[in-house]
């Protein structure tokens, strides 16, 4: 039993040694050219489906972030909007514009008290994210 195991080990070692001299065979160049021809044919035969840069799910958050940015830029000077409402002289019993004006005013004051660098940073980050997403989408087309 032991002798057989030793003989197996020897055979294994001999084969291992002789495989040190083994070299794979060189594939004929026709393999690559033919395979690539088939690949290109397959690729061109397949219908190319362009994914829209902004798909349905992305559309909403882009729209939302755009409106938020727009609102943010307006809130820098929300008194403009308040004045606009006052100028409109909206006359409605349903909406209490006085209260709305007060609230808008307080929000605008809160935003106004923030340093402008915060706005620029937020806008910058959002813009970077958008640009990054846009280019990664372009790369995948």
């Amino acid at each position: 039993m032991k002798k057989e195991a030793n003989s197996q080990k020897d055979t294994d070692q001999i084969i291992r040694d002789i495989f040190n001299d083994f070299e794979y065979e060189q594939a004929p160049p026709s393999i690559k050219s033919s395979a690539m021809n088939k690949v290109f044919n397959e690729w061109t035969n397949n219908a190319i489906n362009y994914k829209p840069i902004i798909n349905k799910s992305n559309r909403w958050w882009i729209l939302g972030s755009f409106s938020a940015m727009l609102a943010l830029s307006f809130l820098v000077d929300a008194s403009v909007i308040i004045n606009y409402w006052q100028n409109l002289m909206a006359d409605s019993d349903l909406v209490d514009f006085k209260l709305l004006n007060q609230q808008m005013g307080s929000i605008s004051l809160a935003f106004k008290s923030m340093p402008s660098v915060v706005y620029f940073t937020c806008i910058g980050i959002a813009a970077l994210l958008l640009i990054d997403r846009f280019f990664s989408r372009l790369a995948n087309i």
């Binding site: 794979y24 065979e25 060189q26 594939a27 393999i31 690949v39 397959e42």
Partner: peptide, 30 residues
Amino acid sequence: QHMSFTLANSIVKNKQEAEEVCQDAIFKAY
């Protein structure tokens, strides 16, 4: 391609057929 060709040839033991096998396999893989 070289290793695939070597392996294909080890089975079919014919270079021309190994070439065909290799081409097919590479395309199937794609």
